[in-house]
Design a protein around this nucleic acid. Structure first.
Lengths: 186, 186
DNA sequence: GTCTATAGGACGATAGAC
DNA sequence: GTCTATCGTCCTATAGAC
């Protein structure tokens, strides 16, 4: 079935997202992506140029959606403090398991300096830390607090990914409740 | 160079450990393992039967070493409380970056149910949680505390793996100092 | 914009000699 | 215990037709 380019791209990005989450980048096969969308392998490459190109497109696509969702959440009246931002992030993540898995896999895989997403994730972590630090109460070292929060989120997500029974939001509430610097914004 | 079987196995395990840490299991090539040890690919398979067999051997090898190290650390007079056990784990990890990377990569990669190490890591997390829970003060839910601690360790390790400047032990001290349930053993 | 066809390698694994 | 040789499968990527 012949599809408009933009629509086909989106379909391919969806399929690739699921498959990378499942197998990682090194385990991804373009043939599988093609099969999942009912086109041929060269058809995939036509849209993204190369396997690396597809990966970059997937990441950019997700980041655009996530940033938009966060902004919207804040404009819609979430509490404008650090706890509010964190809760917004966690509750959004809780609703998109596959995406969280994609990032968890790629974040660790890309620790290797020659991974095609290495720079992307280094920059992304820098950006996330900056975002959290900006909202941190000025009193104590905001950077240490930001790293603490990020570590907790990453760690809890892995446990949640391994055990579907776990309630990510509840777990985050329980754990972040122990952090005075987070729950007492003043 | 012809080597005794046991020595060759160890050399192969070392090489495989480094390469899996670098590329994950799906990105591992037996050819590279063979090259690193100066033998051919069938030579590798002779010792481990299959690629899966090699992975299992690597993990069993590491777990044996780590368990022994922890026991020794405790017998050598580390504080016999939860904080002491955690500090022991973190400080040992801080000294073996490659190994931590291996586990970080495989832990996330193996979230997929058909990954050859899936069962291994599910069981390992269960065991680690049980270990931490055993040392937790009986007062509060030890299980929640154990998950909290495990999340922190995993999260901090990822940050440390990305940024070699970071001091894992110091970071752990700073972060765990905020956990009253951990630092006040009575 | 999508296809067929194909190039050109790398992969895991096996068989059998030494 | 390690080798050579080889099989069959999978891979990314390119060239060119429609």
């Amino acid at each position: 079935m012949r599809l408009p380019a933009l629509q086909r791209r989106e379909q391919l990005l969806d399929a690739a997202t699921t498959l990378i989450a499942e197998r990682g980048y090194w385990g991804l096969s373009l043939q599988d992506v093609a099969d999942a969308c009912g086109i041929t392998l060269p058809g995939v490459l036509h849209h993204f140029g190369s396997k690396d190109g597809l990966l970059v497109a997937v990441l950019e696509h997700r980041d655009r959606l996530d940033t938009a969702a966060l902004v919207e959440h804040l404009e819609a009246g979430a509490p404008p403090d650090l706890a509010g931002v964190c809760d917004a992030i966690v509750s959004r993540n809780a609703g998109q398991r596959e995406i969280v898995r994609l990032y968890a896999v790629l974040e660790v895989e890309s620790l290797a300096p020659d991974h095609p997403a290495h720079a992307f994730f280094a920059e992304r972590q820098r950006r996330t830390l900056a975002l959290l630090t900006r909202w941190a109460p000025a009193a104590r070292s905001g950077d240490a607090l930001a790293r603490h929060i990020l570590a907790l989120m990453d760690g809890l997500q892995i446990q949640w990914l391994r055990d579907p029974e776990l309630d990510l939001v509840a777990e985050w509430r329980a754990v972040s409740g122990q952090l005075p610097a987070l729950r007492r914004p003043l």
